[in-house]
Structure formats: structure tokens, C-alpha cells
Design a protein around this nucleic acid. Structure first.
Lengths: 300, 300
DNA sequence: GGGGCCCTGTCACCATGTGAGAAGCTGCCT
DNA sequence: AGGCAGCTTCTCACATGGTGACAGGGCCCC
């Protein structure tokens, strides 16, 4: 068996069972080598949780990543014994989360995942007004345009309009909710939290260094958030993706609470010369959407 | 619906029918001993599979159906003890399949489901040529138009074009793969199988009666399939949805194998007068797509 | 301040999932 | 065709890991 290293046959704590190995989560990207000193940080995600379920979900994600996989491949890449893999996969097949394509001897994703994806979008529900305003912003600013909202404890991108000429930042897509400290819309949302909420959030997520310019010092971030809450606009210069810059403005509801934010991104050099223009367009879009969240109409 | 119900096809309406699902506490609950007599029914629910995973997936689906649910609601409607529900849901949260919205004390679907949905669509991958041809068929026939393919052991709808004036049959959407015996594209696919494959399929799925006109007799179905394999067109008159009728023609690849089928649906009365026209348009579309699957181009 | 929910621990039990081994089952190669 | 070499399913004894009653924080709302 091509298992990694010494196959621990005996009944041991299969501590390596951390199935979070492969998932293409942006969490694991951009690991600056740093000094390889053994940081005592409890970096590995807590292994808490029901093991068999984590295993099953890991299988699902492997199949998603590879665009279909055989049981053997799954067994090899996750290190689970073959009969276990079959049992778990059959359970997924039975519930329509996977499909077994016997002809090709492999498993692929099942249709239930389509339904769940649709349900997710329905739950998030971006109103048509938001969509048209973000599209308009994209056209006017000739930059990728985003809308993000609070959801639970996260800041989530819920709508994006871009084009080949003005593409989105690659890690950004619907559902993105990491790295608030390094994105413009993330900073807007952080600046709208109470100090306590912010502490809790930053404790949980940390300030990973994504580029050389990423703010990793808590004090510096706090100072910038302070200034953002006065100017009502957040900028981010190559702190998230090298060579790219972002700006965002908050959207508030009738109670004056921050409900979301509007953002644009563009190449750092191209946007620099037009900061004023871009800020104005952002502010106009945000004002229109704030009106919408107050009164149900974008028009003044 | 709650996945655990095997061979419960014909259950397609996504009504919010209370997920009675499986026995709440099958073992622990002391059953009134007497009544155990009979019920020699072959135990319709075959709860084969890993129980904890079925429970977890059932939770996921409850949250999807209701558009968010509290742990208590889940516990009540599935009959699982509260701590168990919390444990399972937290595991899902940890893997981004659920999100816990503390403010509203409820759980909603997580972003991983979006990624998985996207992966599913990528795996199924409907070519642009198919999309444009189906759209053209919809316009010309002024009827909802469908494309379905084999996938594993199923016949799956992968693309639909409809409009308010010519809406799709309500249970039909991307990923639909039930009731092959009652749909036109299903009949086309069944007619392209070997007798053995067909037997296996029908044994597994049965011929549930969906409307008064549904063919539920295996012999009658076989006879009709026979005739379909000669005429190369399948009709279905109110066998799937009352008042609606469907027609389908197969699409073949260079090896002459059936790879998919094209279908349209319309009100039974409106389509009746133009059967010839509709058949012709279906045949033209199917021929074009067959050319595409043979040579990579729709054009002759 | 108090009461009523949510939510999260703790813990002993034992049902449940686990994984080695081996037997079906295909389809491929010779 | 035969036989082989995978893939897939089954069986079974074991102890692990999940389970669920209970109880203790935490939070909001009355």
C-alpha cells in the first residue's frame, strides 16, 4: 500500500486522520516560509468533530477536486483503508451526493449537490437592485466590482461582476470569506464591528501574511480601521494579491447598521491615477444601495 | 428530500412535506412488544449505510429545505437528541457545509456547497454547442427544451431552456434522474439499452404510477420501447404530469451509441395540433447534435 | 434581576463503525 | 476461450468512537 511512511498497522491513535489535508481552501495558500521555527501556534485545525463525518466530507471534496476519482485513488490520497472508503462512498451514493459510474470505475459528484447549491444561493439571495448597481459600477469604473455582506460571524462576497478586461482577483468568488484584514471590503466590515467583536474575529482568524504588504500587526490594523471609520472608505494596496489594489465603501440600512459593502479591484498601477474618480463612483453606488436598504428603492 | 429513503422515487415534488424520515430512535425506544407480529413487509426502509453520516446528511437537507433552521427544530423534526444534533452540526460548520448565525440562533448552509455545486457542473459540462442548439429549439418550437445524457446508471437532465410562455415541467430541473419510464427522454434512453441493462434499471427503480396515464406494466412499456427504437422518436402523453406532453429524439456519437437525447414539452392540447412540426424540429436538432458529437461541429 | 431559552461541556456505556482478510465479479490480456 | 488481475462486496471479531442523559454556563428578553 502506497501509504505515506510507515503504515501504522496496529491499533494506534490514527492521529494522521486529519482529513483536512487537501481541501483547496485559501486558508492554506500563501504560506510564507517564515523562519521555520517551531511556532507553538495551535495551527492545525482542531481535530474536534465526528471523525467518520470528517472523513466522508474529505472524500466528497477529493472527488470534487479531481473531477471524479476511483475508490483506490481516494484511499491512497487520504490514507483510509479501501473497505472503509467503499462503505463511506456508498453511503454518499445512496443519498445522491455521489454517483458511481461503473463503466469508468469511478465516482463523481451527485445531483444533491446541485440542489444544495441552489438552496444556498436562495438563502443568500442577492436582490436584483444590488446586482444591477454592481454591474453599473463595473461598467463605469471599468474594474471588477464586488458586493459583500455580513453573514453569521463572517464577511462574505455574495456578488461579483467582472469581465476579461477587468477580471476579478483570482481567489475571490461567491462565498469567499477569508482574509478580512487584507481586503478592502473586509476592512470596512471590521471597522463596523465593536472592539469586542473585532477582537474575537481576529483571534479566530489571525492576520496571515498574504503578500509582503499585508498588515500583520494588530495595532497597525486598528489604527487604519480607525481612520477608515472616519473617511468611510477603505483602501488596500497589494496587501491581498501582489500588483492589485482594492477600495470599498460600506452600505448601511435604515438603522444605520453596516449590512454590506461595495468594492472594486484593479491593477495597482492603473487605478492609482484615478483614485478620486473611483472613490466617487464607489460612494455613489454605496449611497444608492444604502437608499435601497432603507427604502426599497435605489432612486433617491 | 431526506436521502435515506431508498427506492422512494416518484417523490419528486419538493413539497415541504414533513421529513418523517427514519425511525427516530429505532433501537433504544422500547416498542410495545405485542404489535411486532406481522409487518412482514420487506422492510421498505433499508437503512444500510453508515448511520451517523445519514443523520448528518439529513440535517444538511433539513437546513436546505427550510432555508435555515435552529438546532432545536432539527432535533424535533428528525427526532435526534439535541446534543447529538449540535455535535453533528458543529462538525458541518467546521467543514464549511453549514454556518452558524449566532445573532439569529440558527444554522444556514455554508459556502462549501457552492464550490461543490460548481464542481458538479464542471464535471457534467454541457458543451456550448448543445446549449445553443437547445436554445434554438426552444425558440423555434415555442416549447420548453431539454437535453439529457446517460451518467453512470442514470438518465440525467443536464440542460433546459424555457421561458414564462413555455415553462418547464415543474419537477424537471438540472440533475433530474427519476421516472425514466414516464418521460420521453427516459424512454429514448431505455430503448437504447440492452435488455439486460433495462431489466436491471427497471428492477431498481420500478414503474411508479405518477398520473393515471403512466405506463406501469412492464410488458406494455417493452412494446412501446420496441416501437420507439424503430421510429426513433418517443412520445409521452400526460404520463408524467397531467395535461402535459413530451417528445424526445436520441443523439448518437460516432460509434453510433446513444449518448443523450433532446426533448420538448408543452401543454397537451397546444402541442397536439402540431405533432408533425414538432417532430421535425426535434429531429433536426438531434441530427445537428449528433453531428457535433461525431465531428465536433453542428454544421453539416 | 430573574427566568427561560440556547448552547456546550462531561462521562460511562455499548452499539457502531472499523479494517483485515477473502470471496465474487468484471473486463482485459494472452 | 481461458485465465489473470484488477475492482468491488461480503464476513466477522474487536475496541473505538459515537452516543445521549444530565448538568452547568451564557445570553437575551421579559
Amino acid at each position: 500500500m502506497p501509504g505515506p511512511g510507515p503504515t501504522d498497522n496496529g491499533r494506534m491513535k490514527t492521529t494522521d486522520a486529519l482529513p483536512l489535508s487537501q481541501p483547496p481552501s485559501p486558508r492554506t495558500l500563501a504560506q510564507p516560509p517564515l523562519t521555520s521555527n517551531v511556532t507553538a501556534l495551535p495551527a492545525p485545525p482542531a481535530p474536534s468533530g465526528v471523525a467518520s463525518i470528517l472523513k466522508t466530507l474529505a472524500i466528497l471534496e477529493i472527488v470534487a477536486e479531481r473531477g471524479g476519482a476511483t475508490a483506490k485513488e481516494v484511499s491512497a490520497s487520504l490514507g483510509y483503508p479501501l473497505p472503509t472508503v467503499y462503505r463511506l462512498m456508498q453511503t454518499l451514493v445512496q443519498s445522491d451526493y455521489l454517483v458511481h459510474i461503473r463503466r469508468e470505475r469511478k465516482f463523481e459528484l451527485g445531483y444533491k449537490l446541485h440542489q444544495l447549491g441552489v438552496s444556498l444561493h436562495r438563502q443568500i439571495g442577492v436582490p436584483a437592485e444590488v446586482r444591477t448597481e454592481i454591474a453599473r459600477l463595473h461598467r463605469n469604473a471599468q474594474a471588477a466590482a464586488y458586493f459583500a455582506v455580513y453573514r453569521g460571524a463572517d464577511v462574505v462576497v455574495t456578488y461579483i461582476v467582472d469581465s476579461p478586461a477587468a477580471p476579478r482577483l483570482t481567489p475571490l468568488s461567491f462565498g469567499f470569506h477569508e482574509a478580512a484584514h487584507a481586503t478592502a471590503f473586509g476592512k470596512i466590515m471590521l471597522s463596523g464591528m465593536t472592539g469586542e467583536q473585532r477582537d474575537q474575529y481576529l483571534d479566530a482568524h489571525g492576520l496571515p501574511q498574504l503578500t509582503p504588504a499585508t498588515i500583520t500587526d494588530r495595532g497597525e490594523l486598528e489604527r487604519q480601521l480607525e481612520s477608515i471609520s472616519r473617511s468611510h472608505v477603505a483602501w488596500e494596496h497589494e496587501e491581498f494579491v501582489p500588483g492589485m489594489t482594492c477600495a470599498a465603501v460600506g452600505v448601511r440600512n435604515s438603522a444605520g447598521l453596516l449590512v454590506g459593502s461595495v468594492a472594486i479591484s484593479a491593477r495597482a498601477d492603473s487605478i492609482a491615477i484615478r483614485e478620486r474618480d473611483h472613490e466617487r463612483m464607489l460612494r455613489e453606488t454605496a449611497a444608492g444601495l444604502s437608499r435601497y436598504f432603507r427604502s426599497g428603492s435605489v432612486r433617491r
